[in-house]
């Protein structure tokens, strides 16, 4: 099971060091109704260290959420994966800054990062700034940031089956968040405003 941290409620260290063979699997959650700021540096300092981080933000009103991730590969053969998913409704503001840094000696690094956001109102704003800084040559790295609106085709498909519009929109959001939502215990469905 993941370590789950609610941003702004739980104590989260600003820096984590993972030595040889160590691993961390953690999920960070920004709950609706509260502004939240996460700033985390993870250093992978020994061979074989692994980071599996995920994050979820659910902004429905005027929340201000900022996430800064700084993942530093300082030794070879380490792996990191960061996956963030969130929705921005109302007049909320979301900012995601993600840096993957790979030192020259950190060969055979694998590092991935993605941040996908769903915009639910014209008043909401999401800014993402993914950055790669890579000095080693034998690495596999990727990053992707996407900001989009709910798919009209999905919505119509569900409504054509008799699922009322409001329920269809709820399922759409669950679908979008599912890669991260599936890492969380059941009680989070109601905490973020969805019954399972």
């Amino acid at each position: 099971m993941d370590k789950v941290f609610v941003i702004g409620r739980d104590e989260i260290p600003s820096k984590v060091v993972l030595g040889a063979g160590e691993s961390l699997r953690a999920t960070f959650v920004a709950l609706p109704g509260a502004s939240a700021h996460l700033s985390l540096t993870v250093e992978l300092t020994g061979e074989g260290a692994e980071l599996d981080a995920a994050g979820l933000f659910v902004c429905r009103e005027a929340e201000n959420v900022s996430i800064e991730m700084n993942v530093r590969h300082l030794a070879g053969r380490c792996r990191s994966n960061q996956m963030f998913r969130g929705i921005a409704d109302g007049r909320s503001r979301v900012r995601f800054n993600g840096l993957i840094y790979v030192e020259q000696d950190a060969q055979k690094t694998e590092a991935y990062q993605s941040c996908h956001s769903l915009l639910l109102s014209e008043g909401a704003r999401v800014e993402t700034d993914p950055q790669l800084e890579i000095y080693a040559d034998d690495v596999v790295c990727s990053h992707g940031a996407a900001i989009g609106y709910p798919s009209a085709d999905e919505l119509f498909y569900m409504r054509s089956r008799g699922i009322p519009e409001q329920e269809a929109r709820r399922l759409q959001i669950i679908s979008f968040l599912s890669p991260v939502l599936s890492r969380l215990p059941e009680e989070f469905y109601s905490l973020i405003g969805f019954q399972s």
């Binding site: 999905e154 498909y157 089956r161 759409q172 669950i174 679908s175 599912s178 890669p179 939502l181």
Partner: peptide, 23 residues
């Protein structure tokens, strides 16, 4: 549908439950 739509993270069971109950 000629091109049925994919809905990740929602099982056929939950999808059809929502549809059948609403109906």
């Amino acid at each position: 549908f000629q091109y049925p739509i994919e809905i990740a993270g929602v099982t056929m069971t939950n999808f059809l439950k929502a549809a059948v109950q609403a109906r």
